[in-house]
Design a protein around this nucleic acid. Sequence first.
DNA 1: TAGGCCATCTGGTCCT
DNA 2: AGGACCAGATGGCCTA
Length: 349
Amino acid sequence: MTRSVREELTSVESDEQRELCSPAGRETERAGAGAGEEEEEEDLLHHPEEDEDEDDEEDEEDEEDGENKPKRRGPKKKKMTKARLQRFKIRRMKANARERNRMHGLNDALESLRKVVPCYSKTQKLSKIETLRLAKNYIWALSEILRSGKAPDLMSFVQALCKGLSQPTTNLVAGCLQLNPRTFLPEQTPDMPTHLPPAGAAAYPGHFSYQSPGLTAGLPSPPYGTMDPSHIFHQVKGQPYGSLEPFFDGVLVSDGPAFDPPLSPPLSINGNFSSFKHEPVAGSDYDKSFSFSVHYGGGGAGSHPAIYGSGGPNPRCGELQVEQLMGFDGHSHHERLMNAQLNAIFHDS
DNA sequence: TAGGCCATCTGGTCCT
DNA sequence: AGGACCAGATGGCCTA
């Protein structure tokens, strides 16, 4: 099949299909890549001897040029008579429509998944692959919490979520949590103390280590599948971090995707990490536990109405404020539940 | 302009 | 025979 012929036919086919097969309410955005049926017809129409309307006619092509080409094995192809062609076209159209519907169903499921992972934005959708990765990380992190029965510190949690994600997605997740991504990146720069354990290594006391089953081996090459900071974030030289301070600076790395401020996401889990356990490991701020306070509406990357340390302006910081959860339009019950669960996780220790 | 992401078509395989 | 599922191919759109 030649590409050009395919393309010519595409518009005709697609118009037909749009009318015949497109499910209501879903427009076929694209004309599609190729539709080869008509081209075959064209071929046939140029061979008048094949125009007989007999289904059991055999294709003699093999014998004609058998000396130049190796003989084709297997059952001989029957000629595409007009009647056969017509049936073939109908079958193909039906199959295409089914396939489209199937993929739409798959995409719908993926969209549902997007809405329940802890990073959702209508304007900045996670790609399919990133959605799956984030979901897997999320499941793993939650099950790890269940398994250990301990609340992890937030940084470890976010680290686990972002494991293997691309830089833009990591930034997005950080944005959703209103974290500075730099704060939970493993830094290996010599002149900077790293506050994270080596990938796959045992976690610091009080942290759960992230060793996703099958993740490391299964992921494609970078930027996926590794937490090598060099390709996850462009490090800002001399930027001190390792304490809680960077949590609140709210500045995303510049080359990340624009995290649309109010994060139009139905889900906006503000990183309201009032540390309620201050038992830092000597010389490290790393070992702190945090609590989630879930806030909806207002604010955004630039403004942080929700971010206060314990003892900060918001006396209820760290509590799940149900009335706030219920007050935000467009949030599903499911999402609110999820936030409540997250909150519970970071309270329950 | 290259690369990432996506929707669609297509033919093959397996199953009912 | 027909449907579901899958992977490859292709072209469009978008962004850095």
